[in-house]
Amino acid sequence: MSHFTVYHKDFIEYLQIEKNASPYTVKYYSYDLETFFLFLQQEDIREITEIDQRIVRVYLTKLYDQQLSRKSVSRKISSLRSFFRFLERESYVSSNPFLNVSLPKAQKPIPGFLYMEELEKLFEVNDLSTPLGQRDQVILELLYATGIRVSECQKLTIKDIDFSIGTILVTGKGNKERYIPFGSFAEKAIDTYLQDGRQKLLTKSNNDTEYIFLNARGNPLTDRGIRLVLKKMVEKAALTVHVHPHKLRHTFATHMLNEGADLRAVQELLGHENLSSTQVYTHVTKDHLRNIYLNSHPRARN
């Protein structure tokens, strides 16, 4: 086992145990390290202490030669900076060669969102007399009503729903929990599904699961299953726009901000660690702000 493999293993354990990182985060850190170690092998670098700023510059040149996106390069630099910060903490190295490497500024894409007319078409496509139609309606209602991620939606269990105060308990990234309220439309859809459709789906399987969302065989629905459900809804609604689950999350945030919700409140509802992640949604409300200005400012129009 090479030195690099040992460092890799120790760092991954640190991420999982001390940082409580999600499997998704660990996967990408691991991939970024493996890519870097392969480069070191090609450059005949055998010791971690041989890595200096010259080696870092050569590596960055190779990344840019591969025409990777700014986002991908930034992620790799960030991963390696964290890795060497860990090595420095454990006294494996005396300095962090990635410390002063500037991250390329990524062009933040403006999140796409759905207009109310498009949403209304989606809400009308499900056959609420069938178990799967009831289930699909709940998925749609929750994704839009709460802005949760697909992974968070898939993990919901019956005990996570509190009808008495109209909230769901969501387990997000890094196993961080947050409560999110839901409204009367979502409440009605959930209640109908739990009392009727879900009971019928449970009879298809011997699996007495607590997961809310079940497939046609009565087993827990997967992340991929939820994406397919939404894809079929879009096809039924004959929408020409591309709709993915995250677009419903974008729509939730955009509509909340358009209606005057506080940015900090939306940050908490979305489970964003940094406010900058939430601020990206303010860009898509400029048309709305212009309308408010034109209708409110005394000198905005003749």
Rank of each mutant, 00 (worst) to 15 (best):
L156W: 00
Q154H: 00
R149L: 12
S164A: 12
T146I: 05
L169E: 11
K200N: 05
I139G: 07
A189T: 04
S205C: 01
A145M: 07
T171A: 04
G172Y: 01
S184D: 10
T171G: 00
Y179G: 00
E152G: 12
F185H: 10
L156I: 10
L194A: 04
E152I: 11
V138K: 02
L143N: 12
T157C: 13
S184W: 00
E177L: 13
C153Q: 11
G197T: 06
N175F: 09
F163Q: 01
T146F: 09
D162M: 01
F185G: 07
R149S: 11
K173C: 05
Y144S: 07
K159M: 12
D162K: 09
F182Q: 01
L156N: 02
E177I: 10
Y193H: 05
A145R: 06
K155V: 03
L169Q: 14
I180Q: 08
L156P: 02
I139D: 08
Y144M: 06
R178T: 08
L142H: 08
D162E: 10
G174K: 11
T203W: 01
K173S: 08
A145T: 06
L201G: 05
Q195D: 11
D191V: 11
I180P: 00
K176H: 13
A186Y: 03
G172D: 03
K155N: 15
G183Y: 03
K204T: 02
K159C: 00
V138E: 02
F185I: 14
Q195P: 03
R149C: 13
S184I: 13
I165E: 11
I190M: 13
L202S: 05
A145P: 00
L156E: 00
G174W: 09
T167D: 00
N175S: 15
K188N: 13
L142F: 11
